[in-house]
């Protein structure tokens, strides 16, 4: 046992030395270490996610034919309605193209859309993340916006070979600009994931709301992306806005609010990553940065 003690003392000394070395180690080494452990876990995550898909498949397969028939009928109805809408959209699209030609408007920012399955979700006070089953091999790059339908899910923060981590809208590491519905002046507001909310649905903070903004008759006004920052395309839904009178200082020039992201955010099965075709400067900065 005494031997054990002596060994322990030596181990503590070794640990201290190693810790000191670790702190001054180039960040590439640490990044490599991180990367290695992530890749080690990737097959497990894939496996889990795929078995979940399989379970879902069998669950659906076990449905009775009556149920299927009912669902089929419902779908047919939805389909018919969508057909109608599509026809009317055709006109709009044509008009849009015509106007673009007249004004010689070039559509900025082209994206490549990558559809990805969600492997796991993970959240705490300090992060709100999902891991998706697509990675560097599929062309995903850090900083790319992640959407579902027309609402924003978050942004890719780290990319590995076959998996990527996505910071959700509610993650403290998430920041973007938005326009609020019902604001005629189109002032830019700041959206920031909010830390520290326990046992409540996560929210994001909206700050720098102009003082004269009020929700008016709108029940729950939406917040949209501005499309100005060069990351998110414009007019994607970020969530609904709650003005927070408690967080707003009386007499201050800005209001504060809370953003409630869409409910699906925590039940997502599949998302699309919009990878910009041209690398934006923020990405270039990220690559040379010690963060990540």
């Amino acid at each position: 046992m005494d031997q054990n003690r002596r060994g322990a003392r030596a181990s503590y000394v070794a640990l201290t030395i190693f810790l000191a070395v670790w702190i001054f180690m180039p960040s590439t080494v640490r990044r490599f270490n991180r990367e290695a452990f992530t890749e080690f876990q990737a097959p497990g995550l894939h496996l889990v996610s795929k078995s979940r898909d399989l379970a879902r498949f069998w669950e659906l397969k076990s449905r009775s034919s009556e149920e299927m028939a009912l669902a089929g009928r419902d779908l047919a109805r939805v389909n018919a309605a969508l057909e109608l809408k599509l026809a009317s959209l055709d006109d709009v699209r044509r008009e849009n193209t015509r106007l673009r030609e007249i004004t010689r408007y070039t559509v900025p920012a082209d994206y490549m859309s990558v559809v990805a399955r969600v492997a796991t979700r993970d959240s705490s006070s300090w992060w709100n993340r999902i891991v998706i089953r697509k990675g560097r091999n599929d062309g995903i790059r850090p900083g790319a916006p992640v959407i579902f339908g027309n609402s924003v899910v978050g942004r890719v923060t780290a990319v590995h070979l076959t998996t990527s981590e996505v910071d959700l809208v509610t993650s403290p590491g998430f920041r973007c600009t938005a326009f609020l519905e019902g604001d005629d002046q189109n002032s830019i507001v700041l959206i920031n994931g909010l830390a520290g909310n326990s046992l409540r649905t996560p929210q994001a903070r909206i700050s720098v709301i102009p003082n004269d903004y009020s929700t008016g008759t709108l029940q729950s006004p939406k917040a949209f992306t501005t499309g100005m920052g060069g990351v998110f395309p414009s007019r994607l839904v970020l969530g609904t806005v709650d003005l927070d009178s408690k967080a707003t200082k009386p007499g201050s020039s800005f209001k504060e609010g809370r953003l409630n992201p869409s409910r699906e955010l925590y039940n997502l099965q599949e998302v699309s990553v919009l990878v910009p075709l041209h690398q934006n400067p923020g990405e270039a900065l990220l690559q040379g940065d010690q963060f990540q």
Partner: peptide, 16 residues
């Protein structure tokens, strides 16, 4: 891995 899956379930409440 199982713990990660359990975290997935608790994600809405923000727990790991």
């Amino acid at each position: 891995l199982g713990a990660d899956l359990a975290s997935d379930v608790l994600a809405r409440g923000g727990f790991v």
